[in-house]
């Protein structure tokens, strides 16, 4: 009776039609000591399945992964770089002497520039007098043209006479 039952179960099992309960039944049967000789060759399969299920994962999982640690250190590094950027120039910057020298050079150049601008202004006034001269010359030229007209006229009169 039991044998018949197992036989039909195995048939169903091979066609993948068994339910989980039926499979558990088969497993229990084949893990037991009284397996009929005609099904002996199924035994290792079911024993293997039951044994495999007992295998366990024993390794620890480091949940605080290295990556997050790296991210933490990146912010620290960024702050350090920023601080260096702020502190180094103020320490390594120009000394008092260098500053005074620079100021002197600046003042000298400013003086030289103001001198040049003075000369420029003088030159400008002289230029305006030149422009006046130019105007007078133009007037003279006009008068000269009148004169030449006059001489042409006198020549004509002389020819007629």
């Amino acid at each position: 009776m039991v044998l018949n039952n197992i036989k039909t179960l195995i048939e169903k099992y091979n066609n993948a039609e068994t339910s989980l309960q039926e499979e558990a039944q088969l497993k229990a049967y084949f893990n037991g000591d009284h397996v009929a000789p005609e099904f002996e060759h199924y035994k290792p399969m079911f024993i293997y399945f039951s044994k495999s299920k007992q295998e366990q994962y024993t390794k620890d999982v480091p949940l605080n992964s290295k990556k997050t640690k790296l991210y933490q250190w990146i912010s620290v590094a960024a702050v350090a770089v920023l601080m260096l950027g702020l502190i180094v120039p103020s320490f390594m910057g120009p000394t008092e002497e260098e500053k005074q020298e620079a100021l002197m050079v600046y003042n000298q150049t400013m003086e030289a520039f103001s001198l040049i601008s003075l000369g420029m202004n003088e030159g400008k006034t002289q230029l305006s007098s030149l422009a006046l001269v130019g105007e007078n010359i133009n007037e003279g030229a006009q008068q000269a043209s009148k004169l030449s007209q006059f001489s042409i006229m006198t020549n004509k009169i002389l020819k007629n006479n």
């Binding site: 035994k43 290792p44 399969m45 024993i47 293997y48 044994k51």
Partner: peptide
């Protein structure tokens, strides 16, 4: 048994 289980 170990042999045939290994075989599986």
């Amino acid at each position: 048994a170990k042999d045939s289980v290994d075989w599986v």
